[in-house]
Simulated assay, not measured.
Amino acid sequence: MNTKNSTLNLDWIPSSGFQLRKAGVQFDAVRVDGGDGCRLAKAMRSMVAGEPGPIIIAANGRRGVYFLLPAGSAAHKSWPEGVTRLNSAPGHVCYVPVPALTGRTWPLSWYVPPTTPDRFVHPLLLLNAANSLLG
């Protein structure tokens, strides 16, 4: 674990590279692919003065943008088309790719890195922004 990880006490962040983390344990996530995901991430960043909570971007494949939400908050919401919920429930398990804070993590990187252990993307702000942009 690198110094920044231990300072934040975020043991779900790998010390190097990237790893898959089970959604619903430390966080839930929603993924929006491609340009829509980038536009949504930019909108969230501007809405909250640059600190919307942790957001991960992928540079390959679908170019997914992962918004990390508090555990248990992605389910039971009417997300617009184009949003994929990543959470856990009985008979349903999802995994989220999480990069290290520094070093070689391609194809993943932090669009907005975590700042404190309890800071995640606000689910209702994200839902409203997603409905506005994608709805």
Rank of each mutant, 00 (worst) to 15 (best):
D118S: 14
P113M: 08
D118E: 11
T102V: 10
T115N: 05
L124R: 03
V98F: 06
G103T: 14
P117W: 09
T102L: 00
G103E: 07
S132Q: 04
W106A: 12
A130I: 02
P123F: 00
T115L: 13
V98W: 09
P123Q: 15
N128F: 01
S132F: 02
L108I: 06
V121A: 08
T116K: 10
N128W: 10
S132D: 01
G103S: 11
L126V: 00
V121N: 08
P113H: 08
N128E: 02
H122V: 02
T116F: 13
Y111S: 13
T116I: 02
T116A: 14
W106H: 11
L127K: 04
R104L: 03
P117V: 07
L101F: 12
L124F: 11
S109E: 08
V98M: 05
P114G: 10
Y111P: 07
W110A: 04
A130K: 14
T105I: 03
L133N: 05
H122F: 10
V96H: 15
G103A: 02
P123V: 02
S109R: 11
G103Y: 06
A130M: 09
P114D: 04
T102Y: 01
Y111A: 08
L125G: 12
L124D: 13
G103L: 13
L127G: 12
V121D: 05
A130W: 12
L133G: 03
A130S: 09
S132I: 11
P97L: 10
T105G: 07
P113E: 03
P99G: 01
P113C: 04
A129E: 03
Y111E: 11
P117R: 10
A130Q: 05
W110I: 00
L127E: 11
P123K: 11
H122E: 11
S132E: 00
P97F: 05
L124S: 14
S109D: 05
V98G: 02
D118A: 15
P123H: 09
L108Q: 03
D118I: 06
L124E: 12
W110Y: 06
P99A: 01
P114S: 09
W106N: 01
L134S: 03
V112C: 14
P123M: 06
F120T: 00
P107W: 02
P97Y: 08
V98R: 15
L134C: 00
A100Y: 09
P114R: 04
T105C: 04
L124Y: 07
W106K: 12
S109K: 05
A129I: 01
S109M: 14
W110G: 05
A129V: 10
S109Y: 04
A129R: 10
R104G: 05
P113D: 01
W110D: 01
P107A: 07
P114F: 12
P97W: 05
P114T: 00
V98A: 03
N131C: 13
D118K: 14
P99K: 06
P117S: 14
V96C: 06
L133P: 01
